[in-house]
């Protein structure tokens, strides 16, 4: 297997005053080199926590309770904190929604990028700055030499996000996890960045996990899609399969509620109710109370992932 990222049975729990809440529940997926996986879900579905769990960024009261995270055949969860720190930003990197979470506002772009280079590699600052400049070029930043001397506040939102992506690219990581990385940007800027992300995957061979709530983005960007609901992956497949022939009623409902696919002014099909609280999940299938296809069995027996290529977590998948 040459999967760059292989996640198996990942389970993350958060201790609350009541019972432990399982935010990520037995999540498994693989991403090959140069492929983009779209991880889609609504708020509270556990998609971001999955990203943080892969990066080893879950703090108390949370805990990764089970599972394996294999990057280039190495299990990240077996690493010591020190070794994990060496992996982070090096072999696996993350891009966040808000670039100001990544960038230090009081340091020049070049200085903080050079610092990020020299944490993992021994080299002179001048050489590190050259590396930084090259990374800025890859993400399509015009006149990168000047930008190195700029402070983050002197850049526009789109530029900042590009710098954050460039920082993630500094060490040519095997795996990049992007959590709603273009959500805060304008559509024209988002279009530019998505085009560059696609090129990056093709050219650098990085495996990219693109976490988002926007089905439009994943359907035009990703090779494969995993749909999450209440902490579980409920459907997976190639982007085309999932978008054109959704089999889980939840995926179907999500796609149906997109206004672009309907005649203007007509009532939109809607999923009734709202996402369940993880602390009060219904028995059986967590989607049952909102599902139009639910029957008796859904109320008691949780649908099982048979792990033999079945792609839908549902008792009554659509054909």
């Amino acid at each position: 297997m040459n999967a760059a990222l292989d996640v198996q049975g990942l389970t993350t729990r958060f201790a609350t005053r009541g019972d432990a809440v399982t935010a990520v529940n037995d999540v498994s997926f693989t991403v090959q080199k140069g492929r983009i996986l779209g991880l889609v879900g609504e708020s509270g579905s556990g998609k971001s926590v999955t990203g943080f769990s892969i990066m080893g960024l879950i703090d108390a009261p949370g805990e990764v309770a089970a599972g394996k995270v294999m990057v280039d055949g190495q299990d990240l969860r077996a690493l010591s904190d020190e070794d994990m720190r060496k992996m982070r930003g090096n072999r696996v990197a993350m891009v966040f929604q808000d670039p100001m979470m990544t960038l230090n506002p009081v340091l020049r772009v070049g200085d903080q990028m050079a610092m990020a280079v020299r944490v993992h590699r021994k080299m002179s600052k001048a050489a590190a700055l050259k590396e930084a400049q090259r990374a800025l070029e890859t993400v399509g930043i015009p006149s990168p030499e000047e930008r190195l001397r700029a402070y983050p506040h002197q850049l526009s939102g789109g530029m900042r996000q590009r710098v954050a992506i460039a920082m993630a690219l500094l060490h040519r990581p095997s795996v990049i996890i992007a959590d709603e990385a273009t959500t805060a940007l304008d559509v024209s800027i988002q279009g530019q960045i998505l085009a560059e992300v696609r090129d990056l995957a093709d050219q650098t061979g990085a495996a990219i996990v693109w976490i988002t709530h926007d089905l439009g983005v994943v359907s035009s960007l990703a090779d494969d899609i995993c749909v999450m609901y209440a902490g579980r992956i409920v459907e997976r497949g190639t982007a085309q399969q999932v978008i054109d022939h959704p089999r889980h009623p939840y995926t179907q409902g999500l796609l149906d509620s997109i206004p672009a696919l309907h005649e203007p002014g007509k009532h939109l099909p809607q999923i009734p109710g709202s996402t369940p609280q993880l602390s009060r999940l219904p028995q059986g299938c967590p989607f049952r109370p909102r599902c139009p296809r639910a029957t008796e069995i859904c109320a008691t027996v949780p649908p099982a992932d048979t792990k033999d290529g079945q792609t839908v977590l549902c008792h009554h998948p659509l054909e």
Partner: peptide, 18 residues
């Protein structure tokens, strides 16, 4: 530049500049 469902994977015709 709007990514939409149903068009399949595609190149974005990005507006250049900011």
């Amino acid at each position: 530049s709007v990514p939409t469902v149903g068009t399949g994977k595609r190149k974005f015709e990005a507006i250049k500049g900011e």
